[in-house]
Design a binder for these strands. Structure first.
Lengths: 84, 84
DNA sequence: CCCGATTTGTGCGTATGTATC
DNA sequence: AGATACATACGCACAAATCGG
C-alpha cells in the first residue's frame, strides 16, 4: 500500500491516548487486508513522520502490537505483520 | 578537501539543534564549492567522528539535506552532493 | 564465485528537558 | 504528583547493498 500522511487520524485532545490510536489504526489496516501477512511496516522514523507523533509514542504502539502478537519486530530489518 | 575535527563548531547548549548545525555546516561547504557536485561526503561514521555527535544526529542532518535536494543518499555507497 | 570491508538502513534502549493533562 | 506526549540526543547491534580482491 501507499503510505501517506496520517496525522489527521490522531486526536490529541480526546480520551484515547495517542499511542493507542496509532496501534488501533495499524491494526485496522492489518485486519482490512491492506497490510498483508509478512509485509513490512514503515520504519519507526517513517511512522513518526506519517502520524506526526514522537518516536517514543510510535515505539509504544508497536510494542503493544508486538505484545499482542499482531506484528513481529526483527532487529535490523523492520516490523512485519505476523503470519496468520 | 581534507577533513579535520569539527566538534568545536557545534554548540550543544544553544537554541539551534545539533543536527541543524551539522546540516548548515555541510551546506556551507557545498555552497562555497569545497564540496563539488557529485563528490562524496565523508561516511556517516566519519561525520560522527568529525563533529563529535551521534550517528543518529548525522543521519538526521543528512536526511534534511536530502529532503531539500542538496544531497543524494545511496544505500551501500555513500552520500553525494546533488548535481548542479 | 566467494569473502571481507565499507556504508547506509533499521531497530533497541536509554536519557534529558519541556509542556500539558 | 503522576502520566502522557513531544523533541532532541546519545550509543549500540544487526541487516542489507555495494564494491574490491
Amino acid at each position: 500500500m501507499t503510505w501517506q500522511d496520517r496525522s489527521g487520524r490522531i486526536d490529541h485532545d480526546g480520551p484515547v491516548t495517542v499511542w493507542q490510536q496509532v496501534a488501533d489504526d495499524i491494526t485496522a489496516d492489518i485486519e482490512s487486508g491492506e497490510l498483508p501477512s509478512n509485509s513490512r511496516l514503515p520504519s519507526e522514523a517513517e511512522l513518526t513522520e506519517l502520524y506526526g507523533v514522537a518516536r517514543g509514542t510510535v515505539r509504544r504502539a508497536l510494542a503493544a502490537l508486538a505484545d499482542g502478537g499482531t506484528v513481529t519486530v526483527v532487529h535490523g530489518r523492520g516490523t512485519f505483520v505476523a503470519a496468520r
